[in-house]
């Protein structure tokens, strides 16, 4: 490598303040561990290589590296991705919507921030793009929406003082465009149908769903603590011993009926439609006053409370 890298910026591991070895008398300074240690064969052996064949395999993972993966229909791979990434469904759908026209990679972060219900994630904006690309729901294009030149990256060769060097090049900017499989996923996304399926699965809790949606429909939204007062005190929920308020909120969120936005849980448009579906459901549970319930937090980050 060339040496124009600023080594001064590196934070090395040895403490320079403790580098007390003064250049002076070289006689005793030749360092050789064979002089410092007696022969010790205990616990020693020849140098051993690792054995990659013994790497544990995680079962039931989708092997995207497998040769046949890319040959499977992109629609199938996209559905599989959405199944695996269910908690990020809103984000993935939002990405597909944002990329219906070519979307610059540097604009992806802003597009993500605008998606209602997008959560803090260990995945970077580009990670989401790559996931959708591997699944076949997004493709790389240029600014005009034409296929991205897929040439393998190649450095230039330059000559300096008669010596040849590789000089890394910079590839053209990547834009993202939703593919046919991605558009099919968007078209198939039907929050009303998902809410219907949810309500059909848990008919005994329809009053609870109606209550939670109603609380979220307030202009200022609601908090997990307040929803807990309304749900976890309900004998119908307490006696079932299966669920707590988080289950109902998460189910509604995954159905697209609720979203954590601007510091509160709020109903979405799809949620309002779902609430209308529950118009005939009678919810006669009387929510206790907050003061009557111990330890209700007044603030929440949406998850911890």
């Amino acid at each position: 490598m060339s040496t124009n890298i600023d080594l001064g910026q590196f934070d090395f591991s040895f403490d320079p303040a403790l580098d007390t070895w003064a250049v002076g008398d070289p006689a005793d300074r030749e360092l050789d561990s064979s002089d410092l240690f007696l022969p010790n064969d205990e616990g020693r052996t020849e140098f051993l290589p690792p054995d990659p064949d013994r790497v544990p395999v995680i079962e039931n993972t989708v092997k995207q590296d497998a040769p046949g993966y890319a040959d499977r229909p992109p629609e199938e791979r996209t559905r599989e991705l959405f199944g695996q990434m269910n908690p990020h469904r809103a984000t993935l759908l939002g990405m597909l919507r944002a990329a219906e026209t070519p979307l610059a990679t540097k604009a992806v972060a802003d597009a993500l921030a605008d998606i209602p219900g997008h959560k803090f994630s260990v995945y970077t904006p580009s990670n989401f793009c790559t996931m959708l690309e591997v699944a076949g729901a997004l493709e790389r294009v240029n600014e005009a929406g034409e296929p991205y030149a897929a040439a393998a990256p190649e450095p230039d060769i330059v000559e300096v003082d008669g010596v040849q060097f590789w000089r890394p090049t910079t590839p053209p900017e990547v834009f993202w465009l939703t593919t046919d499989a991605g558009r099919a996923m968007l078209a198939d996304d039907d929050p009303a149908a998902r809410a219907e399926r949810l309500f059909a699965k848990e008919p005994e809790f329809l009053p609870v769903y109606k209550r939670v949606l109603t609380l979220m429909d307030a202009p200022e939204g609601t908090t997990m603590g307040l929803m807990s007062v309304a749900v976890d005190t309900d004998p119908a929920v307490k006696e079932s011993r299966r669920f707590y308020v988080q289950h109902f909120v998460e189910s509604l969120e995954r159905a697209g009926a609720a979203a954590w936005t601007e510091g509160a849980w709020r109903i979405t448009e799809a949620g309002r439609a779902a609430l209308e579906m529950l118009a005939d459901v009678v919810d006669d549970y009387e929510i206790p006053a907050v003061e009557m319930v111990a330890d209700v937090p007044t603030t929440t980050d949406g998850v911890s409370w």
Binding site: S126, A152, P153, P155, P168, P171, V174
Partner: peptide
């Protein structure tokens, strides 16, 4: 290394 760096992007 030079080839890898020639494919540099946001990720």
């Amino acid at each position: 290394i030079a080839t890898y760096l020639s494919g540099i992007w946001e990720n």
